[in-house]
Design a protein around this nucleic acid. Structure first.
Lengths: 102, 102
DNA sequence: GATCGTGATATCAGATGTTGATATCAACAT
DNA sequence: ATGTTGATATCAACATCTGATATCACGATC
């Protein structure tokens, strides 16, 4: 029940977090999926990979393939444009967040 | 451009804000729509009224009709159950927010 | 008491976003 | 070749969002 609610409210927020993560270090899909799940946030693989593709189309992220233990991973990292978008999104998120906690 | 992005990221967050607002004082649709717009957040009337109805179905809000200057407004206020949902959502939002700014 | 104006709410068809089960992929092992 | 494995991709079914338009309830005007 809380799961559904959290999802309705925070899926968009999770997408900001993906950009943020990719700003700190290159990330790949499964990693972020599992990490989010660990903290009680869920995003389906369908949405997750689609989000990566969308961000790449918008020029927020670029990816590079790496072979890790014989498996291909696509590591995404942020671009200049993505960093600008992230800053804007964070700023707006902060505004709303402040309104929640003032 | 920023508008679209903000929306993709923050629509869910805006819904938490609606609950929060209804926790402080009774609110009606147009009021919150215009107030959000003033701060650069947009939510369509379709989504907004649908959100009110959904929250009422879930038992988060109840409404009461008031005649103001000869016009009917539906003022929504939060319920006990809604307050619990709000607290949960705010807690989770804080977790994500903290991750963004640490 | 019929018609109009107004602020607000409701609707719903079309567009867009999400899901998750399933398919596919690339590398390595046997 | 065939199988295994970790990961990514797909896509039909489903859910959500939009916004133009309709509707509502009341008061005013004639």
């Amino acid at each position: 029940m809380a799961d559904v609610m959290i999802h309705e409210f925070l899926l968009g927020f999770i997408k900001i977090y993906i950009l943020q993560f990719a700003d700190k270090e290159p990330v790949y899909g499964k990693e972020i999926h599992d990490q989010l799940e660990e903290f009680g946030f869920k995003i389906s693989f369908g949405t997750l990979y689609n989000t990566f593709h969308g961000f790449e189309e918008k020029g927020y992220l670029v990816h590079e393939e790496r072979n890790v233990n014989g498996k291909i991973r696509k590591y995404y990292r942020i671009t200049k444009h993505g960093r600008e978008a992230l800053a804007t999104a964070k700023g707006k998120a902060r505004e709303l967040f402040t309104a929640l906690y003032e």
